[in-house]
Design a binder for these strands. Structure first.
Lengths: 210, 210
DNA sequence: CTCGGTCGAGAACGAGCGTTCTCCGATAGC
DNA sequence: GCTATCGGAGAACGCTCGTTCTCGACCGAG
């Protein structure tokens, strides 16, 4: 199965869309900007996605998959489950330092269109829910209490927002430090050192997210 | 000094602007929507603010003052300085439950216009910096270590974002719990019980925020 | 060679919006 | 009472943008 012409066109279109939508916002970017960046005739663009909204949807869907995969890949290279929880924040720091970083595409998209576009709200919720589920898996795998997961998520979301607005990566470190304190405190609250939790209290490995 | 006609007009204009800009976003709202909501002739609107950008600026400036005042007022009613730190998150919860809550106006505005409007970036930074300074004051007044403040800020920002996207107030409680754990952990790290810190370590009252 | 169909390039259309302009009625001064 | 000024209501202008339409070049089939 060769990369049929329409599939490479689709890829070029989504590449251009992501580049433009992420860096300049959704409403600011016109279909003509995308057409010229993708080097595709407008007809072709509309043949692939019948409206701008559908194109935005496709952009966010592809970015969601890639973004979560990149996070998970970097985090999973850390062998110790409890260190993995903190590695998440290191990975966020890497992301913040990337040139062109401009915050979370879903937080930004929600701010831009959340009030007027139900699909945008759904996408933002789906992405954030998937992220929260992923963090919950990390927390469970580390044998930490469930209640820790949403707290770590708040730190991560806050770090994304602050890093974007101030244009600095410092929030990653701050969030990591806070997370470490919460992890230590939660682990201590068990009043049992690591590795001595009773096995019936909940599975600690092999969490599938969602 | 009677409320000169132009001042009541300005108030009505800013009221309408805030209502519309906050609930529907900035780009989505047209000057005509504002004009009709304010019940003012367009000429009058442009006499008060020569461009839409200036009107947006004025809207954010007034909201900034009010928002921070409301937070500070609610928080300051808590007598104990360490409890005040946590009361901040209770106050956020009240805000999240207000009808029409749609997240932080500056986070949303940054998501919408941060890429294309330098004034919007400046306003977002100024507001977030002022909030961070305020939290730093609370932390200092409670005799807690400086490094705690940005961590609490991240929790607050994350809570605002999550509450907005999911339309629930749960993040306030989660953030409060996390903040309590961080406060306890930070206070414990002093390895001194409350009230026994050496008086030379830093002023603990009367912090001016800036 | 000719014809039919496909596809690319860009013009065109219709709506929305920020901003300005026109007109008209009311009012104050003489 | 008459005129000059002001302010209100909304039309108009110029531009952008999402979407559609037109036209002409290319290409395989007969």
């Amino acid at each position: 199965m060769p990369p049929s012409d329409t599939e490479t066109a689709r890829a070029r279109l989504l590449d251009a869309s992501e580049e433009l939508f992420y860096s300049r916002g959704i409403q600011t970017v016109g279909m003509d900007d995308i057409r010229s960046a993708a080097g595709l005739p407008l007809k072709r663009v509309y043949a692939l996605y019948p409206t701008k909204s559908r194109l935005v949807e496709a952009y966010l869907e592809r970015r969601d998959i890639r973004w979560r995969a990149r996070i998970a890949e970097a985090v999973s290279s850390e062998p110790d489950p409890r260190e993995r929880v903190l590695a998440l924040f290191d990975r966020l720091g890497d992301w913040f330092r990337e040139p062109g970083f401009r915050g979370c595409a879903w937080i930004n998209g929600f701010g831009e269109l959340g009030a007027v576009s139900e699909p945008m709200v759904r996408q933002a919720r789906a992405h954030k829910q998937a992220f929260a589920d992923y963090v919950a898996g990390l927390v469970a795998d580390a044998g930490l209490p469930d209640s820790l997961a949403p707290q770590l998520v708040l730190l991560a979301e806050g770090a994304m927002v602050s890093a974007a607005i101030f244009g600095t990566d410092a929030p990653a470190r701050q969030a990591r430090d806070a997370a470490a304190a919460l992890v230590a405190s939660a682990a201590g609250a068990d009043s049992r050192p690591r590795g001595f939790r009773s096995p019936g209290g909940g599975d600690t490995v092999g969490h599938e997210h969602r």
